[in-house]
């Protein structure tokens, strides 16, 4: 992704954070981490409580390539380091929700395939892939999750609607994750956002 989509993501994230701040439960419990990836993954926001979050600048990718596999490996590593697991002496965090915004390509196909089992083992409450752009490759995303949405257009308003939906998903997940009864409910995506079957 380049240009307008990246700008739109930044605006979308800011809108999302501002909206989350209006939810008292989210304000006290939600933590955010942001990782960008192109040739290399980079954590531009370490896991930070919503109260302290300031959405960082997202740089235009300098290097080519979409190393989705490497990004996922990095995410799993960060989850291992930053998400607290519960034991007798420590209260566990809620299960993390993973949102991936990409065009679906994995330039490092082999690593991507290798890393899939580790992603499954990382106990994400939900993995939601948002495919952006018009040259989509949903095959990889389908290996990750069945919750795939597709944004046809990459304009600001559509992104805002998408992030509004993500916001609701975060608030909802935050309350009712946890039980091992089943997957936490995910609200239906807005009409502008197409679910990939």
């Amino acid at each position: 992704m380049r240009g307008e989509p990246i700008e739109a993501i930044k605006v979308g994230l800011e809108t999302m954070v501002a909206a989350l701040r209006q939810d008292p439960y989210a304000l006290e419990t939600v933590h955010l981490s942001m990782i960008t990836f192109n040739r290399y993954p980079e954590q531009i926001l370490p896991l930070t409580s919503l109260e302290q979050v300031q959405v960082p600048a997202i740089a235009q990718p300098a290097a080519g390539g979409t190393h989705l596999g490497e990004a996922l490996e990095y995410v799993c590593k960060k989850v291992g380091e930053e998400v607290k697991k519960g034991d007798r002496e420590q209260k566990g965090d809620w299960m993390p929700l993973l949102f991936i915004l990409c065009d679906g390509r994995a330039s490092d196909g082999q690593l991507f395939t290798q890393i899939l089992p580790e992603v499954q083992r990382s106990h994400f409450g939900s993995i939601i892939v948002c495919l952006v752009g018009n040259k989509l490759q949903p095959e990889n995303a389908k290996l990750l999750t069945d919750k795939i949405v597709h944004l046809d257009t990459t304009d600001g308003p559509t992104f805002r609607k998408f992030f509004a939906w993500v916001t609701v998903a975060v608030c909802e997940g935050n309350r009712s994750l946890g039980s091992t009864v089943g997957e936490p409910p995910l609200p239906p995506p807005p009409p502008e956002v197409n679910t990939v079957i």
Binding site: K85, G92, H123, S179
Partner: peptide
Amino acid sequence: DGGEFAGQTRF
């Protein structure tokens, strides 16, 4: 009956 993550339990 707690789990690794918050809110996990048995019923």
